[in-house]
Simulated assay, not measured.
Amino acid sequence: MTTLKYTTPILFFFFLSSRGIGQHKITIATIDAGKIPKEIKYSGNIKSGITWNDRLGENFAVTSETGEFESKAADNGGRDAALYAYHFIRSNNTIEQNWKLYDYVKDCPLDIEASFLTNTLHVTDLDNDGIGEIWVMYKLACTGDVSPSEMKIIRYEGKHKAAMRGESRVKISETEYDGGNYTFDKAFNDAPGYFREYAKKMWTKNISL
């Protein structure tokens, strides 16, 4: 069994006025790239990693990015960039992958980006069921000017995925802005409203980054 050395634990404890109660406490510890268990396989370069315990067991979530690289299919100098997120669970001393997220920009001849927003990988338990909800937020772009980037918030609970998709907000003149809109997918719209409220706050906090 791999022994991990964690940084100071981070406690996510969030009160939602719309519910009138607090969420279940989940204590999260960050993992340095060199301390990630060897059973955890990933592509790209590690952006962040966390671990916590809940009803599913001992959990690990990591995000990684490739950075930009030459597109094999392009003949015009296009480049690709990709990002990944993973969730693993340790059970009976065996670590198994629960889900994998993959997104990308391909064959871009302009400025390209596929990156997670800093400090947006985290875990909540807003429905108080003892199973953590994993959140990530990232942006994708292929632009040659000051334009909004594609932005997404993804929430997983177990293997169930929900997505919020839209654009970042950019200033195009002294008084004008572009972008900032978003939509929820069916999974988000079918879920309790406090999940959407939480996602909106997360979106607003990071919309101009």
Rank of each mutant, 00 (worst) to 15 (best):
I153A: 01
K106T: 14
N93W: 08
L101P: 06
T183Y: 00
T143Q: 11
D190H: 09
D103G: 07
L110I: 04
R169P: 01
A85L: 07
N189D: 06
V123E: 03
L110R: 13
D127M: 10
T175A: 02
G179Q: 07
K171D: 02
Y102K: 14
P192V: 12
K171V: 02
A73C: 12
E167G: 02
V105C: 00
I134S: 09
N189G: 01
K100F: 06
N92T: 08
Y102T: 06
S91H: 15
I153Q: 01
I172T: 12
S91P: 07
H87R: 11
Y102E: 14
L140P: 03
S147A: 05
P148T: 11
A163Q: 03
K161E: 11
K161V: 09
F184G: 00
V136F: 03
F184A: 00
A191K: 02
M164A: 08
K159R: 14
I95R: 05
A82Y: 03
C142L: 03
L110Y: 12
E133Q: 15
A81L: 08
L110W: 15
D129L: 09
H87D: 08
D127Y: 13
V170G: 07
D103E: 04
Y104L: 00
E133S: 15
E176M: 09
A74N: 05
S168A: 02
Y138K: 09
G179F: 07
Y86C: 03
I95P: 04
T94C: 07
M137E: 10
V136H: 03
V170H: 08
F116R: 01
D145V: 05
S149V: 00
K100T: 09
A82W: 09
R169S: 03
R155L: 09
N98H: 04
I112T: 13
R155D: 01
L117C: 15
T124V: 10
R165Y: 01
S168G: 02
S147C: 05
R79K: 15
P148Y: 10
Y138F: 15
I89S: 08
K106Q: 15
E113L: 12
T183P: 00
K171H: 04
A141I: 00
I95G: 00
Y156W: 15
V170F: 04
Y86G: 08
M151N: 04
F188P: 06
Y138Q: 04
D127F: 10
S147L: 07
A85D: 06
F188R: 01
T143I: 15
E167K: 02
G179T: 02
L110E: 10
L140F: 12
S168F: 05
V123M: 06
G166N: 11
L117E: 15
H160C: 00
K139I: 14
L126V: 13
A73K: 14
D111S: 08
R90V: 10
E133V: 13
G130L: 07
A114Q: 00
A191Q: 08
R79P: 02
A81I: 04
K161I: 12
M137Q: 11
N92M: 09
P192I: 12
L121A: 06
D185A: 14
H87M: 14
E150H: 12
L101M: 15
I112V: 15
G179Y: 10
E96Q: 13
M151L: 12
